[in-house]
């Protein structure tokens, strides 16, 4: 009798453990979301011509602080070396990288031994500000070819995408304010990474093609265009 009662109790416990306990499905989840929309804050005019676009899933901290990473190529020294220097010795761009590294370490993101990460989907566009006029410059080229200096290619949009499928990754407990700080620190570094991945050059080619078409319509077909990538 004892055996049967014991077995029944045990079976009940096993069934409870297997089907109920590990699954939080029976738990009641309550969620309240309230949002008040201010109808409109501002309407701004702009004249940004985007000529290249890329979507990247950047993994912080690993894509930022890897060996032979983008900062090594940009600054000519590794982020490990930068991190040991005092902020006063660094350029603003280098300082930003170090601040991002220090913020990451303080919040559990260790690029060398850690397993905490966030995936940041970035949509970046680069192009030119058409409010800046191209300037013809005195040329020294043969055949008296006109040289036109175009506005520099810059990042026109840098967007952190809100994606539906991001739930596949582990959650990281960050408050909205901590997320904002991370994005503020990440954004200038993202510019360097994307330039390293060819966004600037692709945008420069696109801008040149656009201006060639515009000037060709005006009858200027032999012009030589110059521009630079500035981000």
């Amino acid at each position: 009798m004892k055996f049967f009662v014991g077995t029944a109790v045990l079976t009940g416990l096993i069934l409870f453990a297997v089907f109920l306990w590990p699954k939080p499905d029976l738990a009641v989840h309550e969620q309240t979301v309230s949002a008040a929309t201010t109808r409109l804050k501002a309407v701004l005019g702009s004249a940004k011509l985007s000529t290249a676009q890329g979507i990247w899933h950047l993994v912080f901290p690993f894509d930022f602080f890897s060996s032979d990473g983008p900062f090594d190529r940009t600054f000519g020294k590794s982020w490990q070396v930068l991190a040991t220097q005092s902020l006063k010795q660094l350029t603003p761009a280098e300082r930003n990288v170090v601040e991002l590294y220090r913020w990451g370490r303080a919040h559990g993101f260790d690029p060398e031994h850690g397993r905490r990460f966030v995936v940041i989907p970035v949509l970046a566009r680069a192009g030119v500000d058409l409010n800046q006029s191209p300037t013809p410059i005195q040329n020294s080229l043969p055949h008296r070819e006109t040289v036109i200096k175009l506005p520099p290619v810059r990042l026109t949009d840098l967007i952190i995408l809100e994606e539906e499928n991001s739930q596949a990754f582990p959650e990281v407990p960050l408050t909205p304010a901590q997320w904002r700080t991370l994005i503020e620190l990440v954004q200038p570094c993202v510019g360097l990474i994307l330039k390293d991945r060819g966004l600037g050059e692709e945008a420069r080619e696109g801008a040149l093609k656009f201006y060639r078409a515009v000037y060709a319509a005006a009858g200027v077909k032999e012009a030589h265009f110059e521009t630079s990538v500035d981000f």
Binding site: G45, S46, L49, S50, T51, Q53, G54, L130, G206
Partner: peptide
């Protein structure tokens, strides 16, 4: 990465 041509005039 891809080439685009978009002119943004209002935000």
């Amino acid at each position: 990465l891809r080439r685009i041509l978009q002119l943004a005039t209002a935000e």
